[in-house]
Design a protein around this nucleic acid. Structure first.
Lengths: 145, 145
DNA sequence: TAATATTCCTACTAAGTCAATAGGATTTAT
DNA sequence: ATAAATCCTATTGACTTAGTAGGAATATTA
């Protein structure tokens, strides 16, 4: 029951891009330095974000990346679902292909469906903008300093 | 972001034990046949449940397993946390050992904490008894038949 | 044109996790 | 004794994760 580094890093990339958005393009090298994650690994992740239309990228000197949409329109759930493949907490809920023969008599399935709904609802309600603008939570919470 | 078969099967074992609880002990062979899961695999899972005090087991002929507590007192969350090790959606939240240097300036951590809280709250609110007594959901829901 | 800075692309790999299975030892009832 | 059950330790094949490697393509600038 874990979001992988790919999902976590993808969010950090999006937040970093939102924070340093001045209309231009941010090169990956800067994100890599700020986030302390190797450029090579970030490359594979941001390429995915680019292909899915979350990020616009420009090659060559002076190039880089920027958010393709306003941060208010990019939800945490959509980013995670993209790079993680799915957010379903059990394989039984992944599309139709994993539909189990026992589903219509399964006593645990309704609980999994509700868990799935709750997770999707929360992650769909938080945007990249929300993550950037949360001074209140960030400073003075129980894990700061 | 997946609960493994171990977690799912552990819940099915607990539900099966609750459904067939007549005061005596249910042998694993019966559970295996009803749930269509190999006895060998169930053995390793139920042994875990037994050591943690969720299930009482008796060896030898006529032996078997039964719930160690009333189903109302056994939450889905506690069972899953036991066999899965943790329910935290990101490794950053696992105890103190994975505490990250960046935690006090991490813009995604509060979101992960809230997600963690929501998941724990829901799974802690559903009991094995609830899973067994849910005819309304089970019959007539959109995945039955 | 040459140098430089950047993204883009494909492949590879070491380590870890998952989902079981195997083979027997031990215990208890009859 | 025999049968029916749990208990215990180890092993295995497949898959996933978390990167790394090496270079090709593109764009800017001097």
């Amino acid at each position: 029951m874990k979001i992988s580094t790919k999902g976590r890093y993808a969010l950090r990339i999006m937040v970093d891009l939102a924070q340093h958005d001045n209309g231009g393009y941010t090169p990956l090298k800067e994100i890599s330095e700020r986030q302390e994650i190797s450029m090579k690994y970030l490359e594979t992740i941001i390429s995915h974000l680019n292909k899915a239309g979350f990020v616009e990228s420009v090659r060559g000197k002076g190039g880089g990346h920027r958010l393709a949409k306003p941060a208010q329109e990019l939800t945490v759930g959509s980013v995670l679902e993209l790079v993680e493949g799915t957010l379903a907490p059990v394989s039984c809920l992944e599309g139709d292909r994993n539909h189990c023969d026992r589903a219509n008599t399964c006593y645990t399935l309704p609980m999994w469906q509700e868990l799935n709904r709750i997770i999707a609802e929360y992650l769909g309600s938080v945007t990249i903008y929300d993550l950037v603008h949360q001074q209140d939570q960030l400073i003075g919470n129980d894990y700061s300093i």
